[in-house]
């Protein structure tokens, strides 16, 4: 948790956003993040983000579910309390398949969603700074982290030159905190 100073540029079209991100990355300024109202394909490559490994986590959760189900049912019906059901073998694999499948999916889905929330640091009650009220509507926001030595005017002029239709400087919490969205935080200057 740290309060930092940001230069913020707002764009109204993703076609302007892509060259702007290229310019920011080449300029040497520290790109804090880009906020978009919907997923923009190719943005992660443009920003140089790594591919996410979320699906690998999903695979691992799924395998856990499979082995839990098979192991549990086999243990119960062969060791813990074997019962004869209609003359079927105690270890009747075909009859275990449906539950095994369901638990595989359940573990994978629940695990992945929890991991997703953890990685993104989102949860009910979590608050994050919103740089522009329309960044979830139609505005594409680029935030540059400013150090003490950066000249604000220079950065803002640079951002304007990339096609931003609105630029400003904001001091804000860079991470999340517990809070409410109906309250203005004291240090927000926007």
């Amino acid at each position: 948790m740290a309060i930092k100073k940001f230069a913020v540029a707002c764009y109204d079209d993703e076609a302007v956003l892509f060259p702007a991100i290229d310019k920011v990355r080449n300029s040497g300024y520290k790109l804090h993040d880009v906020y978009t109202p919907f997923p923009v394909h190719g943005l992660d490559q443009a920003m140089g983000l790594k591919e996410t490994d979320l699906h690998i986590a999903g695979f691992i959760y799924g395998i856990t579910g499979t082995s839990t189900a098979v192991g549990f049912m086999s243990w119960i019906f062969t060791k813990d309390w074997p019962i004869n059901f209609g003359g079927k073998p105690h270890f009747s694999l075909p009859a275990f398949i449906p539950i095994t499948f369901e638990l595989t999916v359940l573990f994978a889905a629940v695990g992945m969603v929890l991991t997703f929330c953890y990685l993104n640091q989102i949860m009910p009650g979590v608050k994050k700074h919103v740089f522009h009220p329309r960044q979830t509507d139609d505005t594409f926001v680029v935030a540059i982290e400013l150090s003490e030595h950066t000249s604000e005017a220079e950065v803002l002029a640079f951002l304007k030159s990339t096609g931003a239709n609105e630029t400003n400087v904001q001091v804000a919490e860079s991470e999340w905190w517990y809070g409410r969205f109906d309250k203005k935080e004291a240090y927000e200057l926007s």
Partner: peptide, 8 residues
Amino acid sequence: FGWTGTAK
């Protein structure tokens, strides 16, 4: 959940 829509 505090969603802000970052690229990541």
